[in-house]
């Protein structure tokens, strides 16, 4: 019985589809939406921007606000309650780190951006290979 679902979301269209799928596939589960900020970027700007912020927590929340807003909208459409969580670091490491506390991880196959593919790598592939719990890759 799957009762705790971790949805790894990003700011792409695929991220929204991932959450939709998770809510449809596990309607009765407790769903946590995880968004990772400050990961690798083309010139390292996001991580440094965070490191230099006067209020670290506020800065991470700011970066996550938009994604969580659309996540809550999607949840409302599905009559579901979600918990949101923002973390910093490399997405693969963060997701694997948090996966232990859940029954399954749901993640999108890719963000659809060439720069992400080059500079971050395929997150889904690495999570899929190393996760301690079952992983669903949404396509």
């Amino acid at each position: 019985m799957i009762s705790r679902v971790l949805v790894a979301m990003d700011d792409s269209e695929m991220g929204e589809r991932t959450l939709e799928y998770a809510l449809e596939a596990h309607p009765d589960a407790e769903t946590t939406v995880l968004y990772v900020v400050g990961g690798p970027s083309t010139m390292g700007g996001q991580a440094t921007g965070l490191a230099l912020s006067a209020d670290f927590e506020e800065a991470t929340d700011d970066l996550a606000r938009e994604v969580f807003e659309s996540a809550r909208e999607i949840a409302a459409e599905h009559d579901a309650e979600i918990t949101t969580e923002v973390q910093v670091g490399h997405p693969v490491r963060v997701i694997l780190n948090r996966a232990d506390a859940y029954d399954t991880v749901v993640i999108g196959a890719h963000t659809g951006s060439v720069a992400d593919r080059l500079f971050v790598g395929n997150v889904a592939e690495k999570v899929f290979r190393r996760s301690p719990v079952p992983v669903t890759v949404v396509r």
Binding site: G38, G39, P40, S41, T42, M43, G44, A47, T48, L50, A51, F56, E57, T60, E85, V86, Q87, V88, G89, H90, V94, L118, F119, G121
Partner: peptide, 24 residues
Amino acid sequence: EEVPAASELFDPSTTARVVIMQNV
């Protein structure tokens, strides 16, 4: 475990990957 930490932001392998990709 819920607390994001600034020290999570930088690790050598991430930076190395970024610089290598800029050479593509």
